[in-house]
């Protein structure tokens, strides 16, 4: 991973009526980094992605992608980014190849036929290239979305909940594709509310809650910051209570003090989120 900042976000704001969907977010993402945005539904992840991908205009703050301003230089940004949106925005009446042909023409890709064949092969869709998308399963449609995004060889790849509805095997295949892209120097920004996805894939994770960035670090550093081990028990009101400790021994020692139904385990990113916000990721 390089130290050059590809994405710079400064105090970005976006409101919908009286609600601030994104509220003063600042961050940087480096070249070749897989950067995760983690948070519950409505945390502002997708709004932030839409602002960075020029679909939504910020109401305050500024952001640059490879030095281009997301408001003033939208067309330049559109040449170097690709997006996998949360919604499956494929043309369902067109075949997989036709969808990619249209996309390749939009981005003026040279040797498009060969490149489309290669990407269909890479995503395991070559045999179904002439099937209309409405006949595809949800997983196949998500793979086609990813194929479409990779077709343009973007400098920055935005993935908004890319593994939504994918079965575990396909999800892992997608992770491998994303890791491969990052290894080739592409920068990846991924939003997810799957904890294991953020932990398995991301070099750094930003935790969003109610439009605000409440933490930003590597997954391991975030866990260290709250404690590597957690003791969970149910209190007399029937509620789950968590206590964090930096060593297993410390955690086990305190577990003995609890009355019953005690679990000692390693901390995950959801625990970090709960500790920081008092809420759960759903």
């Amino acid at each position: 991973m390089c130290t050059e900042s590809v994405i710079v976000v400064e105090n970005l704001i976006r409101s919908y009526r009286d609600v601030r969907a994104v509220d003063g977010v600042s961050l940087t993402v480096k070249r070749g980094e897989i950067f995760g945005l983690l948070g519950p539904n409505g945390a502002g992840k997708s709004t932030l992605i839409r602002m960075l991908t020029t679909l939504t205009r910020p109401h305050g703050g500024r952001a640059w992608i490879m030095g281009y301003d997301v408001v003033k230089e939208r067309e330049k940004i559109r040449r170097i980014i690709a997006t996998v949106p949360q919604e499956i925005n494929l043309d369902r009446e067109l075949t997989a190849r036709e969808n990619l042909e249209i996309y390749a023409l939009l981005y003026r890709i040279s040797n498009r036929r060969e490149k489309i064949t290669a990407i269909l092969k890479r995503t395991g869709l070559l045999e179904r290239q002439h099937s209309v998308v409405s006949e595809f399963s949800g997983g196949m449609q998500r793979r086609l979305l990813l194929a479409r995004a990779l077709l343009t060889s973007p400098e920055v790849l935005f993935l908004d909940e890319p593994s939504l509805g994918l079965d575990p095997q396909i999800r892992r295949q997608m992770w491998d594709l994303v890791r491969g892209e990052a290894a080739n120097g592409r920068t990846v920004v991924i939003t997810t509310h799957y904890i294991e996805e953020a932990e398995a894939l991301c070099h750094r994770v930003g935790i969003l809650n109610r439009g605000r960035l409440v933490a930003l670090d590597t997954p391991s550093s975030l866990k260290v910051s709250v404690g590597n081990y957690v003791v969970e028990c149910i209190n007399h009101e029937g509620r789950l209570v968590q206590h964090f400790y930096h060593s297993r021994e410390e955690a086990k020692y305190h577990a003995y003090e609890q009355p019953s139904n005690v679990t000692v385990r390693e901390t995950n990113l959801e625990d970090v989120f709960v500790k920081l916000t008092g809420e759960r990721i759903e």
Binding site: R78, T83, P85, N89, L106, Y107, R108
Partner: peptide, 8 residues
């Protein structure tokens, strides 16, 4: 949105 986000 694909058209709007494309460099056209």
């Amino acid at each position: 949105q694909i058209f709007v986000q494309a460099p056209v």
